[in-house]
Amino acid sequence: MFEVFLAFLKLGLTSFGGPIAHLGYFRAEFVERRRWLDDRSYTDLVALCQFLPGPASSQVGMALGMKRAGWPGALAAWVGFTLPSAIALTLFALGVTHWTALAQSGVVHGLKVVAVAVVAQAVMGMARSLCPDRLRAGIAIAAAVLVLLVPYSVAQIAAMIAGALIGRFALNLPPSAAVAQDGFGISKRAGAVLLALFVVLLFGLPMWASALHSRLLLLVSEFYTAGSLVFGGGHVVLPLLQSALVPITYLHDDVFLAGYGAAQAVPGPLFTFAAYLGAVLPDSMQWGGAWGSALVMLMAIFLPAFLLVMGALPFWQVLRERHGIQRGMAGVNAAVVGVLLAALYSPVWTSAIHSRADFALALLAFGLLVFARWSPVWVVLLAAAVGWAGWL
Protein backbone atom coordinates (compact mmCIF):
# COMPACT_ATOMS: atom_id res chain seq x y z
CA MET A 1 0.00 0.00 0.00
CA PHE A 2 2.83 2.42 0.84
CA GLU A 3 4.34 1.75 -2.60
CA VAL A 4 1.02 2.75 -4.20
CA PHE A 5 0.76 5.90 -2.07
CA LEU A 6 4.27 7.09 -2.96
CA ALA A 7 3.77 6.40 -6.66
CA PHE A 8 0.55 8.41 -6.79
CA LEU A 9 1.87 11.15 -4.51
CA LYS A 10 4.64 11.79 -7.05
CA LEU A 11 2.01 12.04 -9.78
CA GLY A 12 -0.20 14.25 -7.60
CA LEU A 13 2.70 16.69 -7.27
CA THR A 14 3.69 16.73 -10.94
CA SER A 15 0.62 15.88 -13.10
CA PHE A 16 -0.41 19.17 -14.68
CA GLY A 17 -2.56 19.52 -17.77
CA GLY A 18 -5.95 17.97 -17.02
CA PRO A 19 -7.36 14.43 -17.22
CA ILE A 20 -6.05 13.54 -20.67
CA ALA A 21 -2.52 14.48 -19.62
CA HIS A 22 -3.00 12.56 -16.35
CA LEU A 23 -3.87 9.41 -18.26
CA GLY A 24 -0.69 9.81 -20.28
CA TYR A 25 1.36 10.16 -17.09
CA PHE A 26 -0.34 7.06 -15.67
CA ARG A 27 0.44 5.00 -18.75
CA ALA A 28 4.10 6.01 -18.70
CA GLU A 29 4.39 5.23 -14.98
CA PHE A 30 2.31 2.07 -14.54
CA VAL A 31 2.36 0.41 -17.98
CA GLU A 32 5.81 1.28 -19.32
CA ARG A 33 7.89 1.84 -16.17
CA ARG A 34 6.38 -0.26 -13.38
CA ARG A 35 4.51 -2.79 -15.59
CA TRP A 36 1.59 -3.17 -13.19
CA LEU A 37 -0.59 -4.10 -16.19
CA ASP A 38 -0.30 -4.37 -19.97
CA ASP A 39 -1.31 -1.77 -22.53
CA ARG A 40 -4.52 -3.53 -23.55
CA SER A 41 -5.76 -3.83 -19.96
CA TYR A 42 -4.90 -0.19 -19.34
CA THR A 43 -6.75 0.96 -22.47
CA ASP A 44 -9.82 -1.03 -21.46
CA LEU A 45 -9.72 0.48 -17.96
CA VAL A 46 -9.53 3.98 -19.42
CA ALA A 47 -12.53 3.17 -21.63
CA LEU A 48 -14.56 2.14 -18.56
CA CYS A 49 -13.69 5.31 -16.64
CA GLN A 50 -14.57 7.51 -19.60
CA PHE A 51 -17.88 5.65 -19.90
CA LEU A 52 -18.77 6.35 -16.25
CA PRO A 53 -19.57 9.75 -14.72
CA GLY A 54 -16.90 11.20 -12.49
CA PRO A 55 -13.23 12.22 -12.74
CA ALA A 56 -11.80 9.69 -15.20
CA SER A 57 -8.15 10.02 -14.20
CA SER A 58 -8.92 9.62 -10.49
CA GLN A 59 -11.08 6.58 -11.22
CA VAL A 60 -8.28 5.01 -13.26
CA GLY A 61 -5.94 5.69 -10.34
CA MET A 62 -8.30 4.07 -7.83
CA ALA A 63 -8.61 0.98 -10.03
CA LEU A 64 -4.84 0.73 -10.48
CA GLY A 65 -4.38 0.94 -6.71
CA MET A 66 -7.04 -1.75 -6.27
CA LYS A 67 -5.28 -4.03 -8.74
CA ARG A 68 -1.92 -3.56 -7.03
CA ALA A 69 -2.82 -3.65 -3.32
CA GLY A 70 -6.53 -4.33 -2.91
CA TRP A 71 -8.90 -1.98 -1.10
CA PRO A 72 -6.14 -0.23 0.90
CA GLY A 73 -4.32 0.34 -2.38
CA ALA A 74 -7.38 2.01 -3.92
CA LEU A 75 -7.58 4.40 -0.97
CA ALA A 76 -3.83 5.05 -1.04
CA ALA A 77 -3.95 5.88 -4.76
CA TRP A 78 -6.76 8.38 -4.24
CA VAL A 79 -5.11 10.05 -1.24
CA GLY A 80 -1.71 10.31 -2.92
CA PHE A 81 -3.05 11.76 -6.17
CA THR A 82 -5.57 14.13 -4.54
CA LEU A 83 -3.77 15.40 -1.44
CA PRO A 84 -1.34 17.97 -2.97
CA SER A 85 -3.92 19.96 -4.94
CA ALA A 86 -6.52 19.70 -2.15
CA ILE A 87 -4.09 21.22 0.36
CA ALA A 88 -3.03 23.95 -2.06
CA LEU A 89 -6.62 24.97 -2.83
CA THR A 90 -7.63 24.90 0.83
CA LEU A 91 -4.76 27.25 1.65
CA PHE A 92 -5.85 29.55 -1.17
CA ALA A 93 -9.40 29.47 0.24
CA LEU A 94 -8.10 30.48 3.65
CA GLY A 95 -6.34 33.42 2.02
CA VAL A 96 -9.54 34.52 0.26
CA THR A 97 -11.51 34.15 3.51
CA HIS A 98 -9.14 35.95 5.85
CA TRP A 99 -8.05 38.68 3.44
CA THR A 100 -11.32 39.69 1.85
CA ALA A 101 -9.55 42.19 -0.40
CA LEU A 102 -7.88 39.22 -2.09
CA ALA A 103 -11.19 38.17 -3.67
CA GLN A 104 -11.42 41.61 -5.32
CA SER A 105 -7.73 41.88 -6.20
CA GLY A 106 -6.19 42.01 -9.63
CA VAL A 107 -4.66 38.56 -9.13
CA VAL A 108 -8.05 36.95 -8.55
CA HIS A 109 -9.55 38.90 -11.44
CA GLY A 110 -6.82 37.50 -13.67
CA LEU A 111 -7.73 33.99 -12.49
CA LYS A 112 -11.38 34.62 -13.38
CA VAL A 113 -10.45 35.88 -16.84
CA VAL A 114 -8.25 32.87 -17.58
CA ALA A 115 -11.15 30.61 -16.59
CA VAL A 116 -12.94 31.92 -19.69
CA ALA A 117 -10.11 30.64 -21.89
CA VAL A 118 -9.86 27.32 -20.05
CA VAL A 119 -13.59 26.58 -20.32
CA ALA A 120 -13.66 27.71 -23.98
CA GLN A 121 -10.81 25.31 -24.74
CA ALA A 122 -12.67 22.50 -22.95
CA VAL A 123 -15.88 23.20 -24.91
CA MET A 124 -14.03 23.22 -28.22
CA GLY A 125 -12.11 20.02 -27.52
CA MET A 126 -15.15 18.17 -26.21
CA ALA A 127 -17.31 19.32 -29.13
CA ARG A 128 -14.82 17.92 -31.62
CA SER A 129 -14.74 14.48 -30.03
CA LEU A 130 -18.26 14.17 -28.60
CA CYS A 131 -20.35 15.97 -31.25
CA PRO A 132 -18.97 14.67 -34.57
CA ASP A 133 -22.35 14.59 -36.40
CA ARG A 134 -25.40 16.80 -36.82
CA LEU A 135 -27.59 14.96 -34.34
CA ARG A 136 -25.14 15.20 -31.47
CA ALA A 137 -24.34 18.81 -32.33
CA GLY A 138 -28.07 19.49 -32.20
CA ILE A 139 -28.33 17.80 -28.80
CA ALA A 140 -25.52 20.02 -27.51
CA ILE A 141 -27.11 23.23 -28.80
CA ALA A 142 -30.54 22.29 -27.45
CA ALA A 143 -29.02 21.49 -24.05
CA ALA A 144 -27.24 24.86 -23.97
CA VAL A 145 -30.45 26.71 -24.84
CA LEU A 146 -32.40 24.86 -22.13
CA VAL A 147 -29.80 25.56 -19.44
CA LEU A 148 -29.51 29.23 -20.42
CA LEU A 149 -33.30 29.75 -20.33
CA VAL A 150 -33.81 27.70 -17.13
CA PRO A 151 -30.76 28.52 -14.95
CA TYR A 152 -31.29 25.79 -12.34
CA SER A 153 -29.60 22.45 -11.76
CA VAL A 154 -32.80 20.59 -12.67
CA ALA A 155 -32.43 21.89 -16.25
CA GLN A 156 -28.93 20.43 -16.47
CA ILE A 157 -30.16 17.03 -15.28
CA ALA A 158 -33.13 17.19 -17.66
CA ALA A 159 -30.79 17.99 -20.57
CA MET A 160 -28.65 14.91 -19.80
CA ILE A 161 -31.70 12.64 -19.51
CA ALA A 162 -33.06 13.96 -22.82
CA GLY A 163 -29.65 13.44 -24.43
CA ALA A 164 -29.57 9.84 -23.20
CA LEU A 165 -33.04 9.12 -24.63
CA ILE A 166 -32.31 10.75 -27.99
CA GLY A 167 -28.98 8.95 -28.24
CA ARG A 168 -30.51 5.60 -27.26
CA PHE A 169 -33.22 5.68 -29.93
CA ALA A 170 -31.82 7.94 -32.67
CA LEU A 171 -28.04 7.53 -32.85
CA ASN A 172 -26.42 4.96 -35.11
CA LEU A 173 -23.00 3.90 -33.80
CA PRO A 174 -20.73 1.00 -34.72
CA PRO A 175 -20.52 -1.53 -31.86
CA SER A 176 -17.24 -1.72 -29.95
CA ALA A 177 -15.15 -4.87 -30.06
CA ALA A 178 -15.41 -7.36 -27.21
CA VAL A 179 -12.42 -7.64 -24.87
CA ALA A 180 -11.28 -9.97 -22.14
CA GLN A 181 -12.66 -9.11 -18.71
CA ASP A 182 -10.55 -8.15 -15.71
CA GLY A 183 -12.55 -7.62 -12.53
CA PHE A 184 -9.50 -6.29 -10.62
CA GLY A 185 -10.18 -8.71 -7.78
CA ILE A 186 -13.75 -7.46 -7.15
CA SER A 187 -16.54 -10.04 -7.15
CA LYS A 188 -19.82 -9.40 -8.93
CA ARG A 189 -21.61 -9.56 -5.59
CA ALA A 190 -19.39 -6.83 -4.13
CA GLY A 191 -19.80 -4.79 -7.30
CA ALA A 192 -23.59 -5.05 -7.08
CA VAL A 193 -23.53 -3.90 -3.44
CA LEU A 194 -21.40 -0.87 -4.33
CA LEU A 195 -23.65 0.11 -7.24
CA ALA A 196 -26.73 -0.27 -5.04
CA LEU A 197 -25.10 1.93 -2.38
CA PHE A 198 -24.37 4.55 -5.04
CA VAL A 199 -28.06 4.69 -6.00
CA VAL A 200 -29.27 4.71 -2.39
CA LEU A 201 -27.03 7.67 -1.53
CA LEU A 202 -27.92 9.54 -4.71
CA PHE A 203 -31.64 9.53 -3.87
CA GLY A 204 -31.44 9.09 -0.11
CA LEU A 205 -29.10 11.92 0.87
CA PRO A 206 -31.42 14.75 -0.33
CA MET A 207 -34.41 13.16 1.41
CA TRP A 208 -32.41 12.62 4.61
CA ALA A 209 -31.17 16.21 4.56
CA SER A 210 -34.72 17.48 4.04
CA ALA A 211 -36.13 15.31 6.84
CA LEU A 212 -33.49 16.43 9.33
CA HIS A 213 -33.39 20.05 8.09
CA SER A 214 -29.60 19.73 8.08
CA ARG A 215 -27.67 22.27 6.02
CA LEU A 216 -24.52 20.15 6.26
CA LEU A 217 -26.29 17.11 4.81
CA LEU A 218 -27.86 19.30 2.15
CA LEU A 219 -24.41 20.52 1.07
CA VAL A 220 -23.01 16.97 1.16
CA SER A 221 -25.89 15.77 -1.02
CA GLU A 222 -25.23 18.57 -3.54
CA PHE A 223 -21.55 17.66 -3.81
CA TYR A 224 -22.40 13.96 -4.05
CA THR A 225 -24.97 14.64 -6.78
CA ALA A 226 -22.49 16.77 -8.72
CA GLY A 227 -19.90 13.99 -8.53
CA SER A 228 -22.54 11.52 -9.73
CA LEU A 229 -23.57 13.50 -12.81
CA VAL A 230 -20.30 14.85 -14.19
CA PHE A 231 -19.70 13.36 -17.62
CA GLY A 232 -16.96 14.54 -19.94
CA GLY A 233 -14.34 15.76 -17.47
CA GLY A 234 -13.88 17.86 -14.39
CA HIS A 235 -14.77 21.14 -16.11
CA VAL A 236 -18.43 20.08 -16.12
CA VAL A 237 -18.47 20.23 -12.31
CA LEU A 238 -18.38 24.04 -12.59
CA PRO A 239 -21.99 24.61 -13.76
CA LEU A 240 -23.38 21.84 -11.57
CA LEU A 241 -21.82 23.18 -8.38
CA GLN A 242 -22.39 26.84 -9.24
CA SER A 243 -26.12 26.44 -9.83
CA ALA A 244 -26.54 24.22 -6.76
CA LEU A 245 -24.33 25.98 -4.21
CA VAL A 246 -24.35 29.70 -4.86
CA PRO A 247 -28.10 30.08 -4.04
CA ILE A 248 -27.72 27.95 -0.88
CA THR A 249 -24.46 29.30 0.51
CA TYR A 250 -24.66 32.86 -0.81
CA LEU A 251 -21.11 32.59 -2.12
CA HIS A 252 -20.37 35.43 -4.50
CA ASP A 253 -19.57 34.40 -8.07
CA ASP A 254 -16.23 36.24 -7.70
CA VAL A 255 -15.19 33.91 -4.88
CA PHE A 256 -16.51 30.85 -6.70
CA LEU A 257 -14.67 31.58 -9.94
CA ALA A 258 -11.46 32.62 -8.19
CA GLY A 259 -11.16 29.09 -6.83
CA TYR A 260 -11.96 27.59 -10.22
CA GLY A 261 -9.21 29.68 -11.78
CA ALA A 262 -6.75 28.68 -9.06
CA ALA A 263 -7.60 25.02 -9.63
CA GLN A 264 -6.11 25.31 -13.12
CA ALA A 265 -2.72 26.19 -11.62
CA VAL A 266 -2.31 23.13 -9.40
CA PRO A 267 -1.53 19.53 -10.38
CA GLY A 268 -3.90 16.64 -9.84
CA PRO A 269 -7.67 16.32 -10.40
CA LEU A 270 -9.88 19.36 -10.96
CA PHE A 271 -12.43 17.83 -8.55
CA THR A 272 -10.26 19.12 -5.68
CA PHE A 273 -12.06 22.40 -6.39
CA ALA A 274 -14.53 20.92 -3.87
CA ALA A 275 -11.95 21.38 -1.10
CA TYR A 276 -11.73 25.09 -1.92
CA LEU A 277 -15.52 25.43 -1.83
CA GLY A 278 -15.75 23.62 1.50
CA ALA A 279 -13.15 25.93 3.01
CA VAL A 280 -14.83 29.17 1.83
CA LEU A 281 -18.27 28.25 3.11
CA PRO A 282 -19.73 30.70 5.65
CA ASP A 283 -18.78 29.82 9.24
CA SER A 284 -22.37 28.86 10.04
CA MET A 285 -22.28 26.16 7.35
CA GLN A 286 -18.87 24.71 8.15
CA TRP A 287 -18.25 21.47 10.02
CA GLY A 288 -14.95 21.19 11.86
CA GLY A 289 -13.75 24.55 10.58
CA ALA A 290 -12.38 25.28 7.12
CA TRP A 291 -10.15 22.20 6.98
CA GLY A 292 -12.92 19.89 8.22
CA SER A 293 -15.42 21.25 5.70
CA ALA A 294 -12.86 20.99 2.91
CA LEU A 295 -12.30 17.32 3.73
CA VAL A 296 -16.03 16.54 3.99
CA MET A 297 -16.88 18.14 0.63
CA LEU A 298 -13.85 16.55 -1.01
CA MET A 299 -14.93 13.10 0.13
CA ALA A 300 -18.55 13.78 -0.86
CA ILE A 301 -17.68 14.67 -4.45
CA PHE A 302 -15.26 11.75 -4.93
CA LEU A 303 -17.37 9.07 -3.21
CA PRO A 304 -19.68 8.40 -6.19
CA ALA A 305 -16.64 8.03 -8.47
CA PHE A 306 -15.23 5.37 -6.12
CA LEU A 307 -18.52 3.48 -5.81
CA LEU A 308 -19.15 3.55 -9.56
CA VAL A 309 -15.75 2.42 -10.79
CA MET A 310 -15.37 -0.32 -8.18
CA GLY A 311 -18.94 -1.46 -8.69
CA ALA A 312 -18.73 -1.45 -12.48
CA LEU A 313 -15.39 -3.23 -12.89
CA PRO A 314 -16.82 -6.78 -12.55
CA PHE A 315 -19.57 -5.97 -15.09
CA TRP A 316 -17.63 -3.91 -17.61
CA GLN A 317 -17.54 -6.46 -20.43
CA VAL A 318 -21.31 -6.94 -20.27
CA LEU A 319 -21.90 -3.19 -20.16
CA ARG A 320 -19.69 -2.27 -23.08
CA GLU A 321 -21.22 -4.94 -25.34
CA ARG A 322 -24.74 -3.51 -24.90
CA HIS A 323 -25.15 -1.28 -27.93
CA GLY A 324 -28.09 0.64 -26.47
CA ILE A 325 -26.00 1.74 -23.50
CA GLN A 326 -23.26 2.95 -25.82
CA ARG A 327 -25.75 5.05 -27.82
CA GLY A 328 -27.34 6.48 -24.68
CA MET A 329 -23.98 7.49 -23.26
CA ALA A 330 -23.03 9.17 -26.54
CA GLY A 331 -26.20 11.26 -26.25
CA VAL A 332 -25.39 12.17 -22.63
CA ASN A 333 -21.89 13.26 -23.62
CA ALA A 334 -23.29 15.52 -26.34
CA ALA A 335 -25.68 17.12 -23.83
CA VAL A 336 -22.74 17.69 -21.49
CA VAL A 337 -21.04 19.79 -24.17
CA GLY A 338 -24.13 21.99 -24.25
CA VAL A 339 -24.22 22.33 -20.46
CA LEU A 340 -20.60 23.44 -20.44
CA LEU A 341 -21.23 25.82 -23.35
CA ALA A 342 -23.98 27.50 -21.31
CA ALA A 343 -21.62 27.75 -18.34
CA LEU A 344 -19.08 29.48 -20.58
CA TYR A 345 -21.54 32.37 -20.83
CA SER A 346 -22.90 32.28 -17.28
CA PRO A 347 -21.27 32.42 -14.82
CA VAL A 348 -17.81 32.33 -16.42
CA TRP A 349 -18.06 35.11 -19.04
CA THR A 350 -20.54 37.35 -17.24
CA SER A 351 -18.48 37.34 -14.03
CA ALA A 352 -15.07 37.86 -15.62
CA ILE A 353 -15.26 39.97 -18.80
CA HIS A 354 -16.05 43.60 -18.01
CA SER A 355 -13.75 45.53 -20.34
CA ARG A 356 -11.78 45.39 -23.57
CA ALA A 357 -8.66 44.58 -21.57
CA ASP A 358 -10.41 41.59 -19.97
CA PHE A 359 -11.44 40.26 -23.38
CA ALA A 360 -7.94 40.83 -24.75
CA LEU A 361 -6.38 38.81 -21.93
CA ALA A 362 -8.94 36.03 -22.39
CA LEU A 363 -8.12 35.88 -26.11
CA LEU A 364 -4.40 35.80 -25.38
CA ALA A 365 -4.85 32.98 -22.87
CA PHE A 366 -7.03 31.04 -25.31
CA GLY A 367 -4.44 31.39 -28.06
CA LEU A 368 -1.63 30.24 -25.79
CA LEU A 369 -3.64 27.19 -24.68
CA VAL A 370 -5.01 26.12 -28.06
CA PHE A 371 -2.44 27.21 -30.64
CA ALA A 372 0.82 27.68 -28.74
CA ARG A 373 -0.03 24.62 -26.60
CA TRP A 374 1.28 26.15 -23.41
CA SER A 375 0.70 24.24 -20.20
CA PRO A 376 -2.39 25.56 -18.37
CA VAL A 377 -0.29 26.29 -15.28
CA TRP A 378 1.88 28.80 -17.18
CA VAL A 379 -1.15 30.47 -18.75
CA VAL A 380 -2.81 30.78 -15.34
CA LEU A 381 0.34 32.25 -13.78
CA LEU A 382 0.63 34.74 -16.66
CA ALA A 383 -2.98 35.88 -16.19
CA ALA A 384 -2.48 36.23 -12.43
CA ALA A 385 0.68 38.27 -13.02
CA VAL A 386 -1.11 40.55 -15.48
CA GLY A 387 -3.88 41.09 -12.93
CA TRP A 388 -1.37 41.74 -10.16
CA ALA A 389 0.41 44.32 -12.32
CA GLY A 390 -2.84 46.26 -12.49
CA TRP A 391 -3.22 46.12 -16.27
CA LEU A 392 -6.82 44.95 -15.89
Rank of each mutant, 00 (worst) to 15 (best):
V4S: 06
L11S: 08
G17F: 03
G18Y: 04
P19N: 08
L23I: 07
L23Q: 03
F26W: 00
F30Y: 03
R33D: 03
W36C: 12
D38H: 10
D44C: 11
D44M: 04
L48T: 00
C49E: 10
S57M: 08
L64P: 04
W71N: 02
A74M: 13
V79D: 01
T82M: 01
P84N: 11
I87P: 01
I87G: 02
T100K: 13
V118K: 03
Q121K: 15
Q121D: 15
V123L: 02
M124L: 14
M124N: 08
R128S: 12
S129Y: 12
R136Y: 02
G138T: 08
I141M: 06
A142M: 14
A144F: 01
V145D: 10
V145R: 02
L146C: 11
L146W: 13
L146D: 15
V147M: 01
Y152A: 14
Y152N: 14
Y152E: 15
V154D: 14
I157V: 15
G167W: 04
V179I: 14
A190H: 04
F203M: 14
F203E: 14
G204W: 09
L205P: 05
L205W: 12
P206S: 08
A211K: 03
L216N: 07
G227N: 05
G234A: 12
H235E: 08
P239R: 01
L241W: 02
Y250P: 07
L251T: 08
Y260T: 07
V266G: 08
P267F: 00
P269W: 04
L270M: 14
A274W: 00
L277Y: 10
G278I: 04
L281P: 03
L281Q: 02
G288V: 10
A290G: 05
W291R: 11
A294H: 04
I301R: 00
P304I: 05
L308E: 03
L308T: 12
L308M: 13
V309I: 08
F315Y: 15
Q317H: 15
I325M: 07
A335R: 01
V337E: 06
L340G: 00
V348R: 02
V348L: 04
A352W: 00
I353C: 11
H354C: 12
L363M: 12
G367V: 00
L368S: 05
V377C: 01
W378E: 07
